[in-house]
Amino acid sequence: METILTLNNLTKKYGPLTAVKNLSFTIHKGNVYGILGPNGSGKSTTLGMVLNVVNKTSGEYHWFDGKDSTHEALKQVGAIIEHPNFYPYMTARQNLALVCKIKGINSHKIEEKLEIVGLLDRKDSKFRTFSLGMKQRLAIASALLNDPEILILDEPTNGLDPQGIHQIREIIRRIASEGTTILLASHLLDEVEKVCTHVVIIRKGEKLYSGRVDEMNASHGFFELRASNLQKLESILVSHPSIGKVTNSEGLVTAILEEPMDAETMNSFLFENGIVLSYLNKRKESLEEQFLQLTNQTSH
């Protein structure tokens, strides 16, 4: 698989504060990656470092095969990491033409990019007449003008209304379906679930999880149980090879599964061991619960 970006132990310190700590991950061509974490977790700092606008403290990163300088490599990258700077009195097309001039790229693709973001019919409207969502879509069009290998977006739906959010997500899916790799930072689990194939979860600058989005929810679930003899119930559960952690909270015992098991099997196993259950419920942890557990933990 073709590599687009590699980070090795990337670290950024601001005095005593470590914003990003030993962050390592790799981005391969043709996928949509999300850097997911609460606000202040180091997402924007990470993007800033790889885009050469924030100086790294230590560690390494390289674009593509690492043979070109960062400056050269960034010519193949499209990025929106701050509020777009367009001239309010100029039209959408004039603003993009100026971007082409500044970047030294041909302006023949302006209409094609406006069409991708659904703004072709507004190409001659002045930027100041645009809604926030339209401004964001114009910024995406401008980042696509150089036909980048990868598009980088920092919180692309921040501040938008539900319709604006939906439109941006549809555009991201469309761009990805045409083969452009995408890296976006978001604090919204829902966003990453809907548009990304891969995710890197960070909290306080440290990586907690990296992998496919659909594997993030690969837990086997857990049982909630009640019985009259709780101590005996707990000791029998702990002895079962498929069960991991067992906890008791106010008479409700929770047994985390490390392998698949259905409720019937669990019930007969306990019955054979002299336990008659008064309550049995199998649950699967939602992605939301897992994410909150990951990002709220106070210590590792």
Score class of each variant (00 low, 15 high):
50 V>K: 07
45 T>R: 02
43 K>L: 12
68 D>F: 15
70 T>I: 15
36 L>C: 05
27 I>D: 00
34 G>R: 05
59 G>Y: 11
42 G>Y: 10
67 K>Q: 12
62 H>K: 05
27 I>F: 01
40 G>F: 11
29 K>A: 13
51 L>M: 10
57 T>S: 08
33 Y>V: 08
53 V>W: 02
45 T>G: 00
61 Y>H: 00
35 I>M: 11
46 T>H: 03
56 K>D: 12
37 G>M: 03
65 D>Q: 11
72 E>V: 09
28 H>I: 11
41 S>P: 00
69 S>I: 07
49 M>N: 08
37 G>C: 04
37 G>D: 09
66 G>D: 11
49 M>D: 06
62 H>D: 06
65 D>M: 09
32 V>I: 12
26 T>W: 10
45 T>D: 01
33 Y>Q: 10
42 G>R: 06
28 H>T: 14
53 V>S: 12
40 G>P: 09
69 S>N: 07
71 H>N: 15
45 T>I: 08
36 L>T: 05
47 L>H: 02
54 V>I: 07
57 T>D: 01
32 V>S: 12
46 T>Q: 07
70 T>V: 14
67 K>T: 11
55 N>P: 15
26 T>G: 06
40 G>A: 03
33 Y>K: 09
36 L>Q: 09
29 K>W: 11
68 D>Y: 08
51 L>W: 02
68 D>A: 14
38 P>Q: 08
39 N>D: 04
52 N>C: 00
67 K>P: 13
42 G>S: 05
30 G>Q: 10
63 W>S: 07
72 E>M: 15
35 I>T: 06
63 W>N: 05
62 H>P: 03
58 S>Q: 11
25 F>A: 11
67 K>M: 13
27 I>C: 08
36 L>F: 08
31 N>C: 08
72 E>C: 13
26 T>H: 10
44 S>M: 04
25 F>K: 05
55 N>H: 15
66 G>I: 08
63 W>F: 15
39 N>S: 14
61 Y>P: 02
36 L>N: 01
65 D>N: 01
68 D>W: 08
65 D>R: 02
72 E>F: 14
30 G>E: 07
31 N>V: 09
58 S>G: 06
70 T>Q: 14
59 G>L: 10
47 L>T: 03
37 G>A: 06
25 F>V: 05
30 G>N: 12
38 P>K: 04
60 E>F: 08
46 T>D: 00
55 N>M: 05
51 L>I: 05
33 Y>L: 11
68 D>I: 07
37 G>N: 03
65 D>F: 06
34 G>W: 06
33 Y>P: 06
60 E>N: 14
51 L>G: 00
36 L>G: 03
27 I>E: 04
54 V>N: 09
59 G>S: 09
61 Y>I: 07
26 T>R: 15
45 T>Y: 04
38 P>D: 10
66 G>P: 05
